[in-house]
């Protein structure tokens, strides 16, 4: 069974993105082990000159590295990803580079009708950055709009069409992980490049 980590893309105490990931954790329990990761306790990224990472960053880096894939669920703040998620990704691409070649599935929930569409497209661009270089599953948007009323009391998604869509995307993601593991041609180069990459050298 695959081991995934699922990053809650906000530091908010109340979050329908967390709810969505918790639902996926339960709903797909027979297909994969999903561990939720919180980013609320990460400090503000300050580019430590000695590249010494805070212990929490080291812990999460190791979890991402050891995982078979990452799910990120993002809300949308001001047409983009929350500063807290952007901050987390700044940490997860500094010193260590756990996202390189890592399969990533993006989901998102929002209170309004758009379901974080713009934040998700920003997140795709962010994950393509030289120090992240993730393998983002293409053509696979999961937008959960009106998320405050989307779950029942047990925390399950009410709309069965949405559940079916999510199940389809998740099945695709399991295949995408296998597929990505076969994309070995650039692996070495990617690893080398990211190790050597430094904004100061460019």
């Amino acid at each position: 069974m695959e081991n995934f980590v699922a990053i809650v893309g906000t530091n908010s105490v109340a979050s329908t993105n967390r709810q969505l990931l918790q639902f996926m954790q339960r709903h797909f329990a027979d297909q994969a082990k999903i561990e939720l990761i919180e980013i609320a306790d990460l400090p503000m990224f300050d580019k430590p000159a000695d590249k010494k990472l805070p212990p929490l960053v080291q812990t999460i880096d190791a979890k991402i590295m050891a995982s078979d894939g990452v799910i990120i669920s993002t809300p949308e703040y001001d047409h983009s990803v929350p500063a807290s998620l952007s901050n987390a990704l700044a940490w997860f691409s500094y010193g260590e580079h756990p996202f390189v070649d890592k399969p990533v599935m993006i989901t998102g929930a929002s209170y309004g009708s758009l379901g974080s569409s713009r934040a998700q497209s920003h997140l795709r661009q962010i994950l393509d950055a030289p120090e992240l270089r993730a393998r983002i599953m293409p053509s696979s948007e999961f937008l959960l709009g009106h998320s405050l009323t989307a779950f029942d009391e047990q925390g399950n998604l009410k709309d069965q069409q949405q559940v079916a869509k999510l199940a389809g995307l998740f099945a695709d993601f399991l295949d995408f992980v296998k597929l990505t593991n076969q994309l070995v041609h650039t692996k070495k180069i990617n690893q080398q490049e990211v190790q050597n990459f430094s904004w100061d050298k460019i």
């Binding site: 990224f45 500063a83 920003h122 962010i126």
Partner: peptide, 9 residues
């Protein structure tokens, strides 16, 4: 990372 720094956001 292809976007604005987290502190500005």
């Amino acid at each position: 990372n292809h976007t604005v720094p987290a502190n500005l956001k």
